[in-house]
Design a protein around this nucleic acid. Sequence first.
DNA 1: ATCGCGACCTGGTTGC
DNA 2: TGCAACCAGGTCGCGA
Length: 300
Amino acid sequence: MPELPEVEVVRAGLERHVVGATIEAVEVLHPRPVRRDHRGPTGFAAALTGQRIEAVRRRGKYFWLALANGDALLGHLGMSGQMLLHEPGALDERHLRVRFTLAAPAPLVEGAPAPGSRPLEMRFVDQRMFGGLVVSAGGAELPSEIVHIARDPIDPEFDDDEFVRRARRRTSAVKRLLLDQGLVSGVGNIYADEALWRARLHGERPGDRLTGPVLRDLLGHVRDVMGQALAQGGTSFDALYVNVNGESGYFDRSLDAYGQEGEPCRRCGTPIRRVAFMNRSSFFCPTCQRPPRARRAGRR
DNA sequence: ATCGCGACCTGGTTGC
DNA sequence: TGCAACCAGGTCGCGA
């Protein structure tokens, strides 16, 4: 379940291997992952063919390849998406959806031998197909499709004051606010639960009942847990998430709350609880993370 | 503007 | 044994 750290690992891997390469051919094997492209699979492929990749960028869980003509190939991994790099001719994955044939990749990291002009396949693989790809016209700097997405917490230009101001005007539960990509992007169910556990905050506390310092502290924990995951190459729970070179991350061994139902809280020993929230699961320590008192009816 | 819900997807697991 | 129900969850679109 890729969240910001996993997507950043993918972005960095792509940056290292495909910047400078030209897209020679595009093969769409399933229409669904390109559903957001109004030109359809054929138009999608045509818009990319012949384009040179100049940069790989990211905001929240979205990443995009900036193309020489100013357009962008914008992608989201959804729940089970992967971007893999292969030598041509490697066996197709069961859930291979789009194949890009690239030519003349950029030199590898400094110090490494120049690879010369060798072909390379970039593959979008996605079992559940919540993810997708779209060609964004003029989107090389910031695709118009994602202008509504807030900056993410590790973006140097993320505005903590604005986040706190907006969150404190919202009546929604703080976990819902963390998952609101218009408020802060890149946070999913896993890192939301981890950050809330670290902040000793119950996810159902309403935003407008939290103080500025509490929200700032929570933001700090979001950054900490993401930074640690990033340092370890992303989280993985099964073979679904693999980074750009096909290697699994291993941050799942460091989780304190998510998926830990029944396990003793690492701080106080109380068994971690699981409850349904927003049609998904929330994991928390019932001792460290006290639920909110009910809002009194009729208050102004 | 904000809020909260259902739909979209597949495949592994669980229950009858 | 076979089949149906359930679960994972990010995003979008909708009605309130």
